[in-house]
Design a protein around this nucleic acid. Structure first.
Length: 516
RNA sequence: GCCUCGUUCGUCUAGUGGCCCAGGACGCCGCCCUUUCAAGGCGGAGAUCACGAGUUCGACUCUCGUACGAGGUACCA
């Protein structure tokens, strides 16, 4: 009875408190969070959004919090949290509070905060802002179907909102299970003030009474994140734009609890080529995919920051520190951006070329030494690889690679003789006989050399070009094929120097033998 | 269907009333360098700023409408 009166007064409440809606944390250190739900393996879209929060926290000296939203216990996937945390580590995104490290506002798993949500759900019931709903999933389903059939917007029909105290008591006495729904005002508007999109106005009548506490006693996202963001003193809420439509409910819950929401930023999605939000359907890559392919985390980090954010009209390559310094929330855009694998690959190449040879070698070695089935060198090549030799090999390849994973197939012939088609030896305008004769001369010249150095060997070999009446490409192409078994390689003479006298002479002999 | 967000070269974007008959980057094409492949340098093609009205001396920039795209419409987040 009294409760009903409260509903009545509440449901006609209109929005006249816009100015006090958001808190302006002028003197407060920013606190931002990333709140993944462990129902799947986070792809780069999620990491991009997390990155924005991380960058702002680091930019301001604030805190970056990780909170696990594991309230959907039926769909929780083993290992999802570890996968995410490993990804953060790989990308160099440390966090101040969260799983493993704890913190002053823990616990950071929502399933461990159950009592808290129940307490606030009850508070909302007491204050008349929420109510127990006894409707079965079957009835809800049925109702939804009918509404859709009649071309009506599917919405809860408020049946349990106006139950009398007696009816409620009767239901409870029989032990019917219940959920808690938030009682949305029945008229008026709710304004969501978004820092990126401006004021977004919703008609309260269009908005459903959403379930905030499930029958298993765990909260849904709508209640959970509000309680947590408040208790954890989050100042800036960055989340995917898919949340815009439930934001009015959130605004009302904040208000009903007597709390002020943080500054809200609905950030643009990362899209697939079909312009739809990136998802498993797109085969959306995860940090692990990038790692396996040999992308450098610093390149991925840089690239990710540029989807939905820009610094100016020209700067694209940023070190981690530069990015932290340059980042600002105001320059986050509003429209979704398609993930472009080509551009990432280009950027990765830039980062590869910036590495010192030693560092490049250290980082590439593991990719070459992994089993052939995983993209490494053929298993017949003995591990571990010799560091100095590999370093000299990679020196020739550094400016040719876009990913570290490309190294093994590009340089395997430095470690073993490989099969190749004899026709590869015979250049345009040549035949087997002429090629053989040329190679014979090359062998003699090379054999007479005292030192094995590309600067020493190049002049006499080149002198053979006019002597044999060939074009440079014809002679050098044949030598290249003989020595590497490939049409494309690093520059011939430096390559031969690295390959070593013994291997080169042997391969030239073999080539000559094949040409009889 | 309903609600909401979005819309500048193929893609990422710059642009907050005149600096823009729109700038940068990836990709593409050409030239240079060069024994090949790259890298690098130089140059080019590529956007009637989704469309239509309006405001204004003047609009990519402001307003409205339309179209298209996307997100939401769960006891998922």
């Amino acid at each position: 009875m009294y409760v009903e009166e409260e509903y009545l007064s509440y449901m006609t409440q209109t929005d006249d408190r816009l100015e006090e809606q958001q808190v302006i944390p002028a003197d407060k250190t920013p606190r931002l969070r990333f709140a993944p739900s462990p129902t799947g393996f986070q792809h780069i879209g999620g990491f991009r959004t997390a990155l924005f929060s991380w960058l702002y926290a680091r930019h301001t000296g604030g805190a970056f919090v990780v909170r696990v939203e594991d309230t959907d216990t039926a769909r929780t996937i083993e290992g999802a949290v570890e996968f995410l945390l490993d990804g953060f580590k790989w990308l160099g995104m440390d966090y101040d509070e969260g799983p493993l490290v704890g913190g002053p506002f823990g616990p950071y798993y929502q399933t461990q905060r159950r009592a808290l949500y129940q307490q606030y759900a009850h508070q909302l019931i007491e204050s008349g802002h929420a109510y127990r709903c006894y409707c079965t999933p079957e009835r809800l389903d049925q109702m939804r179907k009918e509404q859709i059939a009649q071309k009506l917007p599917p919405r809860y029909d408020h049946r349990c909102r106006f139950l009398s105290a007696e009816e409620r008591a009767a239901n409870d006495a029989v032990g019917i299970s219940w959920t808690v729904r938030f009682a949305m005002p029945l008229d008026g508007d709710t304004v969501v003030h978004d820092e990126l999109h401006g004021d977004i106005v919703f008609k309260n009548a269009d908005i459903d009474d959403r379930i905030i506490l499930k029958s298993d006693g765990l909260p849904t996202y709508h209640l959970a994140h509000i309680v947590d963001d408040h208790l954890m003193e989050i100042t800036h809420l960055l989340r995917a734009e898919e949340w815009i439509s439930s934001a009015p409910t959130h605004i009302q819950i904040w208000r009903a609890l007597g709390w002020r929401p943080p500054l809200i930023y609905h950030v643009p999605d990362v899209l697939g080529k079909d312009k739809k939000k990136l998802s498993k359907r797109h085969n959306a890559p995860s940090w692990k995919t990038f790692q396996q392919q040999g992308f450098l985390p610093e390149a991925v980090f840089n690239y990710l920051a540029l989807i939905g954010w820009s610094f100016d009209d020209k700067t694209e390559i940023f070190t981690r520190e530069e990015l932290i310094h340059a980042f600002s929330l105001e320059r986050i855009g509003v429209s979704g951006g398609i993930y472009d694998a080509e551009k990432l690959a280009w950027m990765n190449g830039i980062y590869i070329r910036k590495l010192t040879l030693e560092e490049f070698t250290h980082r590439t070695l593991p990719y070459m030494e992994r089993p052939a089935a995983e993209g490494g060198l053929p298993d017949s090549i003995a591990r571990p690889l010799d560091f100095d030799y590999t370093s000299r090999v990679l020196d020739l390849e550094q400016e040719r690679l876009r990913t570290l994973g490309e190294a093994a197939p590009a340089v395997s012939f430095f470690y073993m003789d490989e099969e190749y088609d004899t026709t590869l030896l015979i250049q345009k305008g040549m035949d087997a006989e002429k090629t053989r004769a040329a190679l014979l001369r090359v062998r003699d010249v090379l054999a007479s050399l005292e030192t094995w150095d590309h600067e020493v060997m190049e002049p006499p070999v080149r002198a053979l070009i006019p002597e044999l009446g060939l074009k440079a490409g014809q002679l050098l192409g044949s030598i290249r094929a003989a020595v590497s078994g490939r049409p494309h390689t690093p520059p011939l003479f430096t390559m031969m120097e690295t390959l070593g006298r013994e291997r080169v002479m042997q391969r030239i002999d073999q080539a000559i033998a094949r040409l009889v």
